[in-house]
Every structure is written in structure tokens, then in C-alpha cells.
Design a protein around this nucleic acid. Structure first.
Lengths: 141, 141
DNA sequence: CTTAGTGCAAAGGCTTTGCAGGCTA
DNA sequence: TAGCCTGCAAAGCCTTTGCACTAAG
């Protein structure tokens, strides 16, 4: 899914398959919800010399190719994740920073509501819900 | 609401009431969902010489005092808004960048769902929903 | 008077851009 | 071979920090 397509998608656009591009895509799949910096670190563990600049450029490209997408889950950097078969929203815990995936059906009702009442078409993959997860909630009290 | 409290809240903490603090709070109320930069511009229209640094520091303070809060609604800078009586989530249009407020009752169902099924306590005020608004959606097609 | 608050300038993250050399196709 | 990609360095945002002066209480 997406991953094997890389060569084909690139070729169909007249673009080239390179080591950095494979490595970055691989890291996005492995890490799930990682920042450009984290992806760069992960790539660097397996291949020296890949520049952070290239990671940024590659992420932009992969996003353009619809192989990955990003969401703003926290204060700073955006996090990238595979754009796979199952859309999902994100549940971000303010306590431990943990990111859970929330299957899109959970939001279908809301999406439908917004569409009919406001004509707003919700992009579920980009949704970030902040709060406190069960674990942190109990520790807190 | 909150606004008149400024002096009192500050005093109760041994902090001082100053012109920049009043101006910044005023701008947050007037602009709703503005970035530090936009707030700075708005403040500057009414009083010259207030430094952007002070805007940042003041926003942090006001947030600490629970008079304003912020959310990450877009790519770059966070947007600040009054922490008033009515909680609300945000509907952000990817097309025109417009931010609509979404009254919290719309999300109560979802919040309840997340709480019971996952123990996740949703912070409705921080929720940002991305998508395409009615206006941009029709233009697009 | 005391010391919190401010402006100014510089430093710090993260991200983007320019350019010349390297490598895919 | 042609020109897409990459690394490197520098420039660009946005935000924070350090410091001395100003002003609230």
C-alpha cells in the first residue's frame, strides 16, 4: 500500500527513485506520527549523510504524491504519517504526549452534521483532538 | 467578563496593571483567533512603541491567568482567543483560512463517547477541525 | 523605594532557498 | 548525456532570552 507504489508513482511523473526517498517513506511507515526531525534521526540510523533539508523536501514530495500526510498535533513541528487505507483522526494527550489513532467512523456522525448544517466538509485525517488520556487522567487525581 | 477582572486578577497575584497588558487583552477580545503578530499589529494601531516581545510575554501571562487561551489552527503561528463563558471548538477552512467557532454542544456526544470508551477527556476548546467551508467548496467545483 | 515590566538587540529553533556537483534513467 | 536530486551553507520566519532602564504600587 503506497509503499510498493513509490517507484511506480515516481516514474509516472518522470521523477526518480532515490535512496533518500525510499528511506524517508520507510521511516514514516515505521514511526507513525513523527516530526521531520525524528524522521531524519531514524533515517540517519540506517544511512549516514542524508541531510535534513532532503527530508523536508522529500516529505513535501511524498505528501504531494498522496503517500503521506501531516497533522499539527502539538506545539511545534507537524507530524507525518502514512496515508493508508484507513483514514483516522488523532487523539493527543497533553500529559504524556501520546498519540492515539481514532478510526474515522467515530467522527462520521460529526462530519455528516457539519456538512448538512454548515456545508463544511471535514477533513478527518487532519483532525487533532487534544485532551488527557485515561492513564494520565488517573495519575493526576 | 475576564476583561474587567484584569486589574483584580493581577492585583491578587501581586502583579501590575500596565498599558500593554490592557491593550493586548483588548485586542484578543476584538480580533478573536489572532496570531501574536496580528495582535501586535492591532495594538500598534492604538499605541506606538509596544514591542512584539511584550506581546508574547503578555499572552503567556494572560493564558496563565486563564483570561485567554490558544489553539494551533494552521500551519504556522498559534491563534489566541478569549477564554469566555462559552467553550468552543474551531472549524478551519483550508481554502480561505476562515475560522468559525463551533459551539461545544456539537461535540458533547463525541466527548462523551471518548470518555466512556477510552477514558480520554477531550479538551473541547483546543479542538481544531480542518476542512473546506461551504463557500470554498462550491467555488472549487 | 522596590522590583515587576518593558524595549531593544541578539540568540535560538525550525524550515526554506540558492547553488554547484552528483547520480538516475 | 540531460536534468532531476542532493548536500551544504546561508537566509528567513517565529519565538525566547539577556540586560539595563522605566515605571507601578
Amino acid at each position: 500500500m503506497g509503499f510498493d507504489d513509490l517507484a511506480a508513482v515516481l516514474r509516472s511523473r518522470g521523477l526518480r527513485l532515490t535512496a533518500p526517498r525510499q528511506l524517508v517513506l520507510e521511516s514514516v511507515y515505521r514511526l507513525r506520527h513523527a516530526t521531520p526531525d525524528q524522521i531524519h534521526a531514524d533515517v540517519s540510523e540506517r544511512a549516514a549523510g542524508v541531510n535534513i533539508t532532503t527530508v523536508y523536501r522529500t516529505l513535501e514530495l511524498l505528501e504531494d504524491l498522496q503517500l503521506v500526510t501531516h497533522a499539527h498535533l502539538s506545539h511545534g513541528a507537524p507530524t507525518y504519517h502514512p496515508l493508508g487505507e484507513h483514514q483516522h483522526a488523532h487523539l493527543v494527550c497533553r500529559g504524556c504526549g501520546d498519540v492515539q489513532e481514532l478510526p474515522s467512523p467515530t467522527l462520521e456522525g460529526l462530519a455528516e452534521d457539519l456538512r448538512t448544517t454548515r456545508g463544511f466538509r471535514l477533513d478527518i485525517g487532519h483532525v487533532a483532538l487534544f485532551g488527557v488520556c485515561g492513564k494520565c487522567g488517573t495519575e493526576e487525581e
